[in-house]
Write a protein that binds this DNA or RNA. Structure first.
Lengths: 225, 225
DNA sequence: CGTTTTATGTCGGGCATCTGACAGACAGCG
DNA sequence: CGCTGTCTGTCAGATGCCCGACATAAAACG
């Protein structure tokens, strides 16, 4: 379920802080965002951002639907794509630079290139996970997979009794899983009734029948629609 | 609709041919495939492939459904991902190397790094296009978008009377658009009946009411399901 | 030229999910 | 405490699409 790539993560921030002075002035700008604030493209150019602290949500906005692609955390990098938006989901500081500038400057900087490749690969991996979800799994399967991922991310074993934190509310989950608030809510409670887990306080759940969860997550009922 | 990235394309093959000798022996292997042949991973390692001639289809195989991610053509590069398969859709020759080997060797080779970044970005772009399709567009919209893309790719203006080649049959289209043969067939013929285009011989269609096509393609009726 | 194989067209039934609407639960704040 | 806004649960109706089955058309092949 997506390797950590930790060396690249820690290193790119370190590179920016320590070796940043070797770069021409003004390639990377530091910017700060408040919760809910949108990163707006000043012009039509592509930009590369690297999160320093906080959390940015990368999402599609098409017509009146939102689809969250990823929640970016410190060390993550992203390239603003057409039609893709970014929003701070908590106070956030980041580095930003024009893509063209980055390419010119970093062509002679193998370490950065390496970091860039890793960053792109990670985003690609996340995109593929989402695509796989949409293409092959029902809403229930996607929710189960999200719970499993949340547990893994929090370093929690998939065993009965364990408490798993859910970073997202129903609505945000729905946007991340490509479904609707109502469907998430309904499925979630159905899963509880069937004994897969129980609700702890808000934003937390306690695992019960883990095999149920695993079956749903691994595509027991496969998406045809 | 996805920039050409042509410099990277032409250059990476050139790099492999001309500067290949500068690389340690045996990093990149040349392999040939016949139509229909699968690229099987000899082991669990990740591989990087670069198409030399022909065409490879990259696709998911989950349970009994297939979803084509992309058709790779000369100059395209790809990294074999878990759960992702590759199949020659015509006689094909390609270069292949272990990812780890590539990373070690190319860390000191900025030109290759550059090419790698471009290649990854292109794959990411295609993945996002597919994701956007699945998330936001109905079957009809996806078909329309595919027709528009086919025209653009063939360098054909979107004007009545123009003949657009469709490289794919109904079944292959369905796999690429994340739907079924039947739905593609039905929608396709409905679009013909509504006057968007007419069928020429097999694999070709003649544009008629282009505005219809554009409306469907740009998400006139947006996906809710 | 007939036969076989493959690609395409069409239909009816079923189902997962969306929509819109409303009610209850919870949190923040004066 | 009571008010207000936001989050959550649930329902009934509508729908886009899948599935299986079968019919037709077009290519492949002797």
């Amino acid at each position: 379920m997506m390797p950590p790539h930790s060396p690249a993560h820690s290193s790119i921030l370190a590179l920016l802080e320590t070796e940043g002075s070797h770069l021409p002035r003004g390639v990377f700008q530091k910017v700060a965002f408040e919760r809910g604030q949108l990163l707006t493209h000043p012009d039509d150019a592509d930009y590369i951002v690297i999160i320093k602290t906080g959390c940015m949500r990368a999402f599609w906005l098409a017509f009146d639907r939102e689809l969250s692609l990823a929640y970016l955390r410190p060390g993550d990098m992203f390239s603003t794509h057409t039609r893709l938006h970014m929003q701070a989901s908590e106070p956030t500081r980041l580095f930003i630079a024009r893509r063209t500038a980055v390419e010119q400057v970093l062509a002679v900087h193998p370490a950065f290139q390496q970091a860039l490749v890793h960053g792109l690969a990670k985003v690609l991996g996340q995109t593929m996970t989402l695509l796989e979800d949409l293409a092959f799994h029902h809403a229930r399967g996607r929710i189960a997979r999200y719970v499993v991922r949340s547990a893994a991310q929090a370093g929690i074993a998939l065993q009965p009794g364990q408490v798993v934190p859910l970073a997202l509310g129903m609505e945000e989950m729905a946007a991340l899983l490509g479904t609707t608030r109502q469907t998430v809510s309904t499925e979630f409670n159905a899963m509880i009734r069937e004994g897969a887990f129980a609700r702890e306080r808000r934003g937390y759940l306690r695992l019960r029948d883990v095999s149920l969860l695993e079956n749903w997550a691994s595509g027991d009922g496969i998406r045809n629609t």
